[in-house]
Computed example of a mutant assay.
Amino acid sequence: MADTLKVGVVGPMTGPLAVMGEQWRQGIETFMELNGDKAGDTTIEVVYRDTTGNPANAKQMAQELIVRERVQALVGFGISPSAAAAAPVINEVQIPTFLPHVASPALMDASPYFVRLGQNIATNAEVAAKWARESGMESAYVAVADYAPGHDVANAFKPAFEGAGGTVTGSDNIPLSTVDFSPFAERIAEAQPDMVQLFIPPGAQAVSMVKAMAARGLMEDTLIMGQGEAEDSDIHLFDGTIKNFHSAIYYSESLDNPENEAFVGGLQAKFGEDVLPSTFTLGAYDSMALIYALASEMGADFNGDAVMAKLAGYSWASPRGKITLDAESREPIQDFVIRRVEDVDGQLRNVVVDTIPQVHPISGS
């Protein structure tokens, strides 16, 4: 009888962050639809647990998957506090854990068994700063949500922009409870920067901030750069005011390569032609690609140290392009793209306007 490898997926399946869990599921099911449920002679079985987005539940859910379900690999967590809460359990049992979208630069220090499949957001900010300077932006304003990831963005952007000869003319830490973004947009407009480095949680807050900036004319006259505020899967939440929004990130639905064609085609064949991928979808899809590659070689014997040794420096072709896992940091070395929201055949889409090849993640220490 062939071995079975059980993969535990733990994260927000319900609650305010449920879109993350929903899109992970889409990415996982798309990969398995395209590749079957076997990696070599090993059957892959996926078991889900819901944290409701509460980090306090993450450790318990991870323990339940490991002890009761006897999973040999974990995927998920979604937000850095959830992954950090589960790290002691992961370290004790030495279980490989694939992070589709945990973005804190410092998180990887919490466990030698973490593998990042998304981004270290400090890297995004550094890419944005350097690209903006190369594009002639002399002054910048930094407006970020007032929690750890926002601070990571601000702390990476400012030295990179100033180190390249630019000037940061102002900054705001915007409380997560903010409903009225007009005072922040007013301060940005008064500072008259060439660009704004933005980091706002996707969804209602990002929509409100963009509309506030548009009301002050900033979307027309100023380079506004973010990361995942306007993913193609969420772009329907915005009106035309999102046009010209730029993002520095590692994936676009429009990338022209065979892997992305298969990914997008498989996603839409399974979930509907109007469904668009996000970095959440992609992170889960690529997590499964690694798990299948390892299981094809190792079977269900997922010894943590052996898995991590095989992943050091591992490269593969993803829908985002070539990825290599940095042997030291366990983070992806990957292409970054600069996207701009444009009207494409009557629909708003992110269009790639530049590519920065094979970016190394910056240290989170």
Rank of each mutant, 00 (worst) to 15 (best):
V75S: 02
L74E: 14
A132H: 00
A73E: 05
I95Y: 07
G364N: 05
A87E: 12
Q347A: 15
A248K: 05
I235A: 09
L255D: 13
A306I: 13
A58W: 00
P277H: 03
D37M: 07
I44E: 07
A309R: 14
V93F: 10
E126R: 13
Q63T: 09
A58N: 02
E231P: 02
E231T: 05
T169V: 14
R320C: 01
Q119I: 14
D50R: 01
S287C: 12
A148S: 13
V264P: 09
I44W: 09
T279E: 14
R349E: 14
D305R: 10
D180K: 07
G170C: 03
E261Y: 06
E134Y: 00
A212P: 10
G40C: 04
V47A: 03
A140T: 09
I333M: 05
V351S: 12
V264T: 13
Q26T: 01
V115I: 15
L107Q: 08
A214W: 01
V89Y: 07
H101K: 01
W131C: 01
V168Q: 02
P357Y: 12
P112A: 04
T169A: 04
R330S: 09
S135P: 01
V127E: 03
P202Y: 08
E273S: 14
T222R: 08
Q60Y: 00
K322D: 11
A2N: 14
E273D: 12
V75I: 15
D286F: 01
N124Q: 11
P277I: 04
V9Q: 04
N303E: 15
I200E: 04
D256W: 00
T43L: 11
Y250C: 03
D335F: 09
Y251E: 12
N57V: 07
R216D: 10
M213G: 14
H151G: 04
A312Q: 15
Y48G: 11
E186G: 03
M288A: 12
E33V: 06
D232C: 12
D305H: 13
Y141D: 01
W316Q: 02
V341G: 07
A125V: 01
V46P: 12
G40H: 06
S233G: 13
S254E: 05
M219C: 06
R68Q: 12
V307F: 12
S139D: 09
P55Y: 06
D221F: 01
P159M: 00
N155E: 11
D305P: 12
Q358R: 10
Q358P: 02
V19K: 13
A87G: 10
N303W: 11
A85K: 08
E92I: 00
S139M: 01
Y292R: 13
D286E: 12
G78P: 06
A129D: 03
L17I: 03
A295F: 11
S80N: 07
V359D: 02
Q119L: 14
P12W: 07
G150M: 08
A132P: 00
P319Y: 03
P175A: 14
E126D: 14
A262E: 11
M288E: 10
Y141R: 04
